[in-house]
Amino acid sequence: MTTLTTDPTQTFASKLLGAFMHQRLLAFASLIVLLIVFSLASPNFMQTSNMIAILQATSVNGVLAIAATLVIITGGIDLSVGTMMTFCAVMAGVVLTKAGLPMPLGIVAAIGAGAFCGLCSGTFVAKLKIPPFIATLGMMLILKGLSLVISGTRPIYFNDTPGFDQISRGSLIGEVLPFLPIPNGVLILFLVAGAASYVLSRTVLGRYCFALGSNEEAVRLSGVNTDRWKIAIYALSGAIVGIGGLLIASRLNSAQPALGLGYELEAIAAVVIGGTSLSGGRGTIIGTLIGALIMAVLTNGLRVLQVAQEWQTVVTGAIIILAVYADMMRRNKSN
C-alpha cells in the first residue's frame, strides 16, 4: 500500500493523465469520440433533428439510470426499475383515463406509486434483510403482474387528457428559443439529474448513500439509523422511476402494460458505463448521464450507419465490458 496521498512533486502531465483516467472523463471522452466518428461516417448524424432524437431517446433510460444509481451507490441493486416504470405509467392511466381526474393528480399518482414501490423494496432490504438482488427481483415480477392485472392487459390511452403528451413531447425551451426545440422530456431528465446530483453531494441522504455502500456496519456503529435511511433512498429512487413512468407514458401517449422488462438492464448498463461501482460507495450522476448518452448515441449512430439491430446489441455489450475494464485499470493504478 502506498502511503502518499498528495504529492507536490507530481508533474502536471501525470496529474492530467490521472484525471483523464478518471472514469467520468474517460466516459466523456468516449462520448466525444463516438460523436466524432459517427459524424464523420454519416452527414445525417450531426443534424439538429438527429441530436434531439438522441436526447429524447436518452430521457427515459437516463431517468431510470439515475434512480438506479442511488441504490447502486448504497451497495444495492434495483432490478425492478423497468417494470416499476410501467406500473407508475399504468397508475397514471388509472387516475387520469379510468377515473377522469385532472392531470396534476395523475402526475402525483405516478410519482407516488413509484415512491411507494421503492418504500416496499427498501423495507424488504433493510428490515427483512432480503438481499437487494432478490428483493427487487421479486418486486420486478410483482409489478409486472400488477400492471397487467390493473390495466386488464390492454394499453391505457391518454387521449382524454389533453396536454399529457406535452409532458415529454412539448418543448418549453423551443417556445422561448425557436431554434432549439429541445423536448420537455430532455429538460426533465436534466432537472432530475441536477436535483439527484445535489441530493447526493450536498444532503445528509446523499452522504448516507455513499457511507452505506462503503461500510454499512461502520455506519450502524456510528449510531445512524441505517434501516430508515436505506428505505428513504429506495423510496426516493422509486419516485424518480415514477417520473420515468410519466415520461414514457407521455411519449407513447399511453401506458403499455407489457412494456418495461429489459429497461432495468439498460439502466444498470448506463450506470456502470458511467463509472459507478457495483460494489457501492462510489458513483456520480453526471457519470450515469454520460453513460446513458453513450448508449443512446451508439444505438442511434449504428442505426444511421444502417448496422443491423442485432449487431447494435453486441456492440453495447462489448462497450459495457470495456467500460468496466477501464475502471478496474484505473483503480489498480491508484492503489
Partner: peptide
Amino acid sequence: HQELSLMNDLTAAQNVFIGREPRRRFGRL
C-alpha cells in the same frame, strides 16, 4: 472499536461526523 470501522470512500471529516453532520435546513449538509 478494535477493528477499524471507517467508510473508505468518504473523507476523513465525513467519517468523523457520520450521523451528526452539521446541517442546514432541508437536510442540506
